[in-house]
C-alpha cells in the first residue's frame, strides 16, 4: 500500500516536472518581432547589453539545460576576479555560512543552556531577545560594514546574527522544559552538576536544540544570497547579481537551481543529525 503510494507520488512528481518544462518550453519559443518593443525605462534599468538593443529573450529549458551543463562540467574555473566557476562561488557562500553558523552555535548553545537553567536569566534576557530576534539580519549590514570595515567578515557577521536567535531560543526552551522526573532521577542519584548537564539535560534537550539548528541553517542559507548581493566580490549571491547585470538569465536560473539544491542538502544533513539525537518516550 505505502509502496504503491510512493510510486504514484513519484510518478505525479515527474508529471508535474514534465508539465512545467513543457509550459516553459512553449512559452519561450522564439517568436518573430518581439525584440523591437523594449520599454525604454527597462532598457535604462538593465545595463549595457539590452540598452544596445541586443535581443535577450527568456531562455528555453534547452538553453538552461545547456548552461547548467556548461557550469557543471567546469565548476571551479577562475578567469579573473569577476569570472569564476559557479562551484567556487557556492564554496565561498557555503564557507561564510558555515563559519557564521558555527560561531553562532558556539555562542548560542552554551548561552541558551545557561539561560534555560536559570528562570532569572530567562526573564531578564527575554525582552532583549524578543526585540533583537525580529530584526532582519540585513539591517545589521551597514552597522557591520561601518564597524568591521571588511565586507567578507560583515557577511559572516550577518549570518552569525541570523543563525543566533533560533538556536538560542530553542536551546533555552529545551533546557528549561526538561521533564522534572528526569531531574529528580538525577537528584536522587546525587549526580554532579556537570554530569547532570551532559548526561541528562543535554540529551533531553537535544531534539529541541537540533530543531533550532535546522531552522538556523535554513535562514542562514536564505540570508547569504541577499548579503552577498549587497557586499559583492564573491559568492553565489554576488554571482546572481553579476549575471543580472550581464543580463544572463540562463546563468541566473542555473544559480537559482543550485541554491535550492544546496539548501536542500543542508536541510537533509541536519534532519539526519536530528534523527541521531531523537528519542521516543
Amino acid at each position: 500500500m505505502t509502496r504503491s503510494l510512493s510510486l504514484r507520488a513519484g510518478l505525479l512528481s515527474l508529471a508535474i516536472l514534465a508539465g512545467t518544462i513543457a509550459i516553459w518550453h512553449f512559452a519561450t519559443l522564439p517568436t518573430a518581432g518581439s525584440a523591437g518593443n523594449v520599454d525604454p525605462e527597462y532598457a535604462a534599468l538593465v545595463s549595457g547589453a539590452a540598452a544596445e538593443g541586443q535581443k535577450s529573450t527568456f531562455p528555453t529549458p534547452a538553453d538552461v539545460a545547456a548552461t547548467l551543463w556548461k557550469h557543471l562540467k567546469d565548476p571551479f574555473y577562475v578567469r579573473g576576479a569577476n569570472d569564476q566557476g559557479v562551484g567556487i562561488q557556492l564554496a565561498y557562500s557555503l564557507g561564510r555560512v558555515l563559519i557564521g553558523y558555527l560561531i553562532a552555535a558556539a555562542v548560542a548553545i552554551p548561552l541558551g543552556f545557561l539561560i534555560g537553567m536559570s528562570p532569572l536569566a530567562t526573564r531578564a534576557l527575554d525582552p532583549f531577545i524578543q526585540i533583537l530576534k525580529p530584526i532582519s539580519p540585513l539591517a545589521w549590514m551597514p552597522l557591520a560594514l561601518y564597524t568591521i570595515k571588511d565586507s567578507g567578515i560583515s557577511a559572516i557577521f550577518v549570518i552569525f546574527i541570523c543563525s543566533l536567535w533560533p538556536m538560542l531560543i530553542n536551546t533555552a526552551f529545551g533546557v528549561a522544559s526538561v521533564r522534572k522526573e528526569w531531574l529528580n532521577v538525577a537528584a536522587t542519584l546525587e549526580v554532579g552538576a556537570l554530569r547532570k548537564a551532559f548526561m541528562v539535560i543535554l540529551p533531553a534537550a537535544a531534539p529541541t536544540i537540533m530543531t533550532g539548528m535546522r531552522i538556523s541553517i535554513g535562514i542562514a542559507w536564505l540570508v547569504i544570497v541577499a548579503a552577498e548581493m549587497l557586499v559583492g566580490g564573491t559568492g553565489i549571491g554576488y554571482f546572481v547579481w553579476n549575471e543580472w547585470n550581464n543580463l544572463s538569465i540562463g546563468n541566473i536560473i542555473t544559480a537559482i537551481l543550485l541554491i535550492g539544491l544546496v539548501g536542500m542538502i543542508l536541510d537533509v544533513a541536519l534532519a539526519r543529525a536530528a534523527r541521531l539525537v531523537a528519542y521516543r518516550e
Binding site: 528526569w182 536522587t188 541528562v200
Partner: peptide, 19 residues
C-alpha cells in the same frame, strides 16, 4: 538535608531516561 543514594526512589511514572 537532600536526596541521597542511600534512599532510592521508584517513581510512579517509571521515569527512565528514554535516550
Amino acid at each position: 538535608s537532600g536526596p541521597s543514594l542511600d534512599r532510592a526512589v521508584i517513581f510512579q511514572g517509571h521515569s527512565l531516561l528514554p535516550w
